[in-house]
Design a protein around this nucleic acid. Structure first.
Lengths: 120, 120
DNA sequence: CTCAATACTTACCATAAGGTAACTACTTGC
DNA sequence: GCAAGTAGTTACCTTATGGTAAGTATTGAG
């Protein structure tokens, strides 16, 4: 996004700025399928994300009120992340997206299969 | 996304890679509300996007089969962009997202209004 | 002869974003 | 007194991204 651009002028852009971008929807998707997840669990479910970026995304999601951070000062510390009520509202959107994703994946697979058969 | 990361391994990541990122969902949203739009029209509807980035996004969307490019070799040339059948499938997803966006926007406005009243 | 119009493309530059690796805190266990 | 374990933070560096400005093609109008 351009620095001059104010996302607040449009609700659609505002929400896109909050939930989109690398890894963010994926984190929300994981959290929307579990009660809560610890930092290390999320990191394990997304192998290619670095701790720095994961922290950054979780902080931003917490800042926009989509994710709740539950810190337990045990030793070593345990931190549970879960969706807030607002965060849970996008579950149906992600579910819709996932449906489309699975459908396209099937189509692409069968297209690829047909192409291979045709090539023989 | 990390360069090592292969989005094809997961349908969800694949679709996110195709439709998310700066401006892309916005372009799809505009196209899903019109029959077709010319390059200049899209540029006018998104004032802060540069021609370079708009071209890039449209090429990528065309490449993943979500957008159809209709080039008329008139002078000066006219190019119409429209959603393909596959591109149209994400309209309902964007519509769901827009609904949530509008609801949050209303909530935030009234919260802000209450805060201002409380501050008086 | 030059401009205007559309839809780009190209070159160059500045900023932002992400990766890696090392470091922090604190207590239990060895 | 040193390592382990969790959830980070920090510094440093590289890459990617986007902006700006200029150039391209073609032809009718002035």
């Amino acid at each position: 996004m351009s620095p001059k651009h104010n996302p607040n002028q449009c609700p659609m852009e505002s929400i896109l700025g909050q939930i989109m971008g690398p890894w963010t929807p994926y984190i929300l998707w994981l959290l929307s399928n579990e009660e809560s997840l610890r930092f290390g669990q999320i990191a394990a479910l997304i192998p290619d994300i670095s701790a720095k970026v994961l922290t950054d995304r979780l902080r931003k999601l917490e800042g926009s009120g989509l994710v709740h951070r539950d810190y337990h000062p045990t030793v070593p510390p345990t931190v549970y992340y879960s969706l807030t009520a607002r965060g849970a509202e996008i579950h149906c959107v992600l579910q819709g997206l996932n449906k489309v994703a699975l459908r396209w994946d099937e189509e692409d697979k069968s297209d690829k299969g047909n192409a291979e058969i045709a090539a023989e």
